[in-house]
Nucleic acid binder design. Structure first.
Lengths: 195, 195
DNA sequence: ACCAAGCATGAACGATCGTTCAAGAATTAT
DNA sequence: ATAATTCTTGAACGATCGTTCATGCTTGGT
């Protein structure tokens, strides 16, 4: 491990993700990034092209980690709905203290950016659609084992989950731990449209 | 109306609100603001102290306008729940096309800022609590006229409304008009915990 | 051992950032 | 009419922004 080995792209993107996630696109400066990923400007631009290029790569990585996390939840239980609830607990409750920012990085990005960064904005929107499709797949699974009625619209339920997660994560961030998050998550599954 | 009349503070804060709301705190530069509010730096700093000072004043104004909007909805119908639904339609659906940004400015602010702007962050959180209290007051009204059962927890219902609005506004922004927002709003009121 | 190719370096660039302040114009008080 | 006060102006400041590129080091092939 010499002083000048080729940089570890995964590690770098990971660190960049954490910083971008915490501070957002605009408030994160290239000098901030240089510090946390321990690279000089020339190397960063050779590898990622621009501040936007690096950000885009963090969005991809963040999304893949989200998918992995959901799959990990899915493998911990035979109940697809329990997996969904476990996932919600992780991103809504645990993420408040263990993540760079309690909010979903994709939602934060869609919230922050305007048409001045059209590619990044679209990339974040697409990634959110991807996550919603993952939810839908889990819900379809729940239908095949009879955990959710077959006549329910899986797409609509996935959309519902997406809205609830987004709403709850934002709410958690505004209330500094005062909200009964676990109970609020339970209520999502106790009532229509799931039962 | 001479060239040098004292500036119209309300008009100025209004314009600043629109710009901050659209672009966020960090992406809005003082020069952007100078252009839209037609004031020179010296005047702005004499009147508002700093970029943060002006932003804080826009938060206050934005919140008051939100309260006014809810009261306006309340006066258009004898049903408190219908008023709430009308308010939701306005901020979730109409705001997508008619506002500087479909998201709630307060949520956007809480999402964007970190502890580097503690006062602004807290101000936005406080304003969201204020809005939630307004929702609660409407729900209590609904209980007094028997539109909502008395044994329901008005605070919990207000919290629920807050989460739904936040989730739906974010979702609307990510989907570019593809989501059945009106139907999703209806569902909030058709199912538990309101019925 | 040497060369060629690939990679990292960091000083420097022009642009823009938030902010200040000396100076002048407009208004109010006398 | 004049003085005192209030408000506006915009050039300028140091700091920082995203980005570039000439230079030198490291690595793999022979």
């Amino acid at each position: 491990m010499s002083n000048n080995a080729k940089f570890d792209r995964e590690w770098v993107v990971d660190k960049a993700t954490q910083l971008y996630w915490e501070k957002g696109f605009h408030a994160t400066s290239m000098r901030n990034l240089q510090d946390v990923i321990d690279m000089r400007p020339g190397s960063i631009y050779a590898a990622f092209g621009s501040k936007e290029g690096l950000f885009k790569e963090t969005l991809v990585r963040y999304t893949q980690q989200g998918i992995d996390k959901l799959q990990s939840c899915r493998k911990q239980t035979s109940s697809p709905l329990s997996a969904l609830k476990l996932f919600m607990r992780q991103v809504v409750i645990e993420a408040q203290t263990q993540s760079p920012n309690g909010m979903c990085m994709l939602v934060k990005t869609v919230s922050e950016l305007t048409d001045e960064q059209p590619e990044l904005l679209q990339a974040a929107k697409d990634a959110l659609k991807t996550m919603e499709a993952e939810f839908e797949a889990v819900i379809v699974e729940a239908q095949t084992i009879g955990e959710v009625a077959n006549h329910k619209n899986a797409k609509a339920l996935a959309r519902h989950i997406q809205v609830q997660i987004t709403g709850l994560r934002s709410y958690a961030r505004t209330t500094d731990g005062d909200a009964p998050l676990a109970q609020m998550i339970d209520e999502v599954f106790e009532h229509h449209p799931f039962v």
